[in-house]
Design a protein around this nucleic acid. Sequence first.
RNA 1: GCCGCGUUCGUCUAGGGGUUAGGACGCCGGCCUUUCACGCCGGUAACACGGGUUCAAAUCCCGUACGCGGUACCA
Length: 354
Amino acid sequence: MDNSLTHSKGVVRMRLESGEENVIRLRVPENVTVQFNDLIKGAVKVDSTNIDDQVLVKSDGMPTYHLANVVDDHHMAITHVIRGDEWIPSTPKHILLYQALGWQPPVMAHLPLILSPTGGKLSKRSAQRQGIPINVRDYKAQGFEPQAVVNFLALLGWNPGTEEEVFDLEELVSAFSLERVGSAPAKFDLDKLNWFNAQHLRRLKTGALLERVKPFLDEQGMVVKDDYLRKVCLLVHDRLQHAKDLATQFSYCFVDPVAYDPVGVKKRWKSDAASLVNEYSVRLNALTSFNEDTVESELRDLAASREVGAGRIIHPVRLAVSGTTAGPGLFALLRVLGQRTCVRRLQNAVARLG
RNA sequence: GCCGCGUUCGUCUAGGGGUUAGGACGCCGGCCUUUCACGCCGGUAACACGGGUUCAAAUCCCGUACGCGGUACCA
């Protein structure tokens, strides 16, 4: 020990006057129990022998966090300190400081930590390795709904006491209380976040969805008129999990398919496909009123006259028009794509798939 | 090492002396359907372990194990 307590006053004064560097520490009382009542953890007790004499003012004259924090909070009249679990060990130091300064400590609440899915705290590095966005910017870039992220995070450690779990911000604000925050750490679950995202996306009105989705279309260099985009949104709204899905998974709503899913081709493009699709395209082209009903009755009519099941035409047409085997109801899709586009794509597929 | 905080399905959690231990995500099956989603219905799966206390313990107490955090003139 080399401090002012271990030397005579004379020596201390001499060393001070000689300009020797020094720090100012908190003199932690010996053998007392420092206790505080945490709103989340309950009573936390620490023996003062486990607390070092904390540096309060560094040798360069700057206060340490511990001092600054306490002084700041007091002067700002802070009533509640709500922070992560990792601060629990320094809280007794702060309590001691409040006592030393003769101030009333604020209410303390220590939130459980968010852990990586593999355990351990969710650091930037561990998160990235597991495909978990870490910066708010990354959540935006990946098309996460702000409300979904907040909702998901809020339910990590807190629960409303009911079985409700999808909350928008306002609902959350009125439902939340520190009393219902648990004290065990929680692992980040990307699957569940994705689910929350889909829930929140579905709650969006079409107009709002439009705005969410546009940046991702821009990113892909897709220029789309609002009224067409609106129709597409109406068509696929329930099938989106992330805002960017429209520009990726449903890109065929905006550009002709560049390839046809090989598995789908094998399964659905039978020997009579080209002939059926070709004939359907001729019929569509001749339509004077192009809507869901007319494209459907043309198709069923064709199926009947060729004596095949409707599926024998529906599946190849879907493949021709979207390049995939999955998607919205075919007739609604055709209606949205429009007559010219449908005819063109059907012809292309006949030419390319034979 | 020492100090602290934790431990209910794989994950998020409800429940806190007597419950068929509830819900959600995921997964599996079914229904719907031209496909895939959505939706709906059903299934899978948990009280870390050992001692107490008690008529009765997932629930209260102690210990162990395990996990996490903190141990700076960082925040």
